[in-house]
Design a protein around this nucleic acid. Structure first.
Lengths: 220, 220
DNA sequence: ACGTAATTTTAGACTTATCTAAAAATAATT
DNA sequence: AATTATTTTTAGATAAGTCTAAAATTACGT
């Protein structure tokens, strides 16, 4: 029996919450992440545990099994390839594609996805700079820091964004900031850790710490 | 509330069953068409009737309301545009795309579909020769007959197929028959109404009546 | 370490879509 | 026209996923 969209969404949520540290994930964290109740999460986790996608011990949180991780990686591959399609081929903005990719990612056909990959020229990163896992599930790593770590007079090239929400991306659009944009630190305000930044050698702008922490850059 | 995939599939089934004559559709016909039971169909029809997508009277069958027809037309537009994408861009065979398009068609975004339409060059027909309704739901009509009606020595150009099943399309693949292929009637066998046909001026082949009734052609 | 707070699980109810089996209505046959 | 056959609907049950409210467990604070 194939997994339902709902089951897949739980697996994805668990993957994202344990991505960094690979630690067990709390019931409440999952509930918040997919806007449901703790009770529903407990029910679903039991089911996923019986099916072998997660390891679960009552009151102790949940971790993905290798099968679960594989499902999550596949979904992320699907999602990011569809985002590339929507932006590069259908001319959507990077702030418009998340919800559509969220639906498209559930169409389960490795043949479809591999053909799409080929059609798009085997991209390594999606429109937000996130790495696209390959057929074997391997992610391309990239050395990146956040804009917040750069020193005065250093220039970073935008290679990714942490936040994917429409408001944040639309804000960047308003400043003509895209992947590849050069951001030069003109001044750092100690008081609130905001920074004055020059964009592509032209306009100046102020970024709060919250903004600069959400911008991934590589040093020019 | 948006329609569920299930509700949409019922609406599509009713549309297809009443397409020709626009007559009320039987409960049993719907049940057979989507491989479910008459009881389930009755339940769903009641629901769709309350929502205004069908007109329904107990024991008298069901017809689509204008809203229902609009939903069906939209789904057909989605389905056929995705089929064009899969065949023309991702290099799928015309015998491989039905099930995938069946999933893709349910993604509800007119923006997505209109952009896809533009990207594909506003095609008027899908890979099986079926007309693609435009944004307003209008189908392009085409004068066509079946190969069965052609006389000896007449040549038809394949413009569509009635059957969309994988076995039938794969059979045509085996004979190198595609849209655009020229089919010349060499001989008609009165006994069983089978025909001897020359394909693209080269190979000969025999078609049973069942085959020639499923091939739409225009006279050369 | 003991009581309180927070988290997690269980219990029971609800919704959607499905099914089987029985009842009701319509259609067909003699 | 009456009986039989077919079709359709109803009734009741099941499964997936969700919820609220209550119970169980774990964590925290003094």
């Amino acid at each position: 029996m194939p997994l339902s969209y709902t089951e897949e969404n739980y697996i994805k949520a668990i993957f994202k919450l344990s991505e960094k540290d690979d630690q067990p994930v709390n019931t409440n964290a999952i509930a918040k992440s997919i806007a449901t109740t703790a009770a529903s999460v407990t029910d679903m986790i039991k089911k996923l545990s019986e099916k072998g996608f997660v390891y679960y011990e009552r009151y102790k949180g949940v971790t993905l099994s290798p099968e679960g991780k594989s499902v999550a990686t596949q979904l992320i591959r699907n999602h990011r390839l569809w985002e590339v399609f929507l932006v590069n081929k259908l001319q959507f903005g990077w702030d418009q594609v998340h919800d559509l990719a969220e639906e498209l990612e559930h169409i389960k056909s490795t043949d479809l996805i591999n053909r799409l990959d080929t059609f798009l020229g085997n991209p390594k990163f999606d429109p937000h700079g996130d790495p696209i896992p390959n057929r074997e599930g391997k992610f391309t790593l990239r050395n990146q820091t956040t804009l917040g770590t750069l020193l005065t007079d250093q220039t970073g090239i935008l290679v990714g964004v942490r936040e994917h929400t429409t408001p944040f991306l639309a804000y960047l659009n308003g400043l003509n900031i895209n992947l590849g944009t050069e951001l030069k630190i003109i001044e750092r305000i100690q008081f609130d850790r905001s920074v004055k930044v020059q964009i592509n050698g032209k306009e100046m702008s102020m970024f709060t710490e919250q903004v600069s922490q959400n911008l991934f850059v590589k040093l020019k």
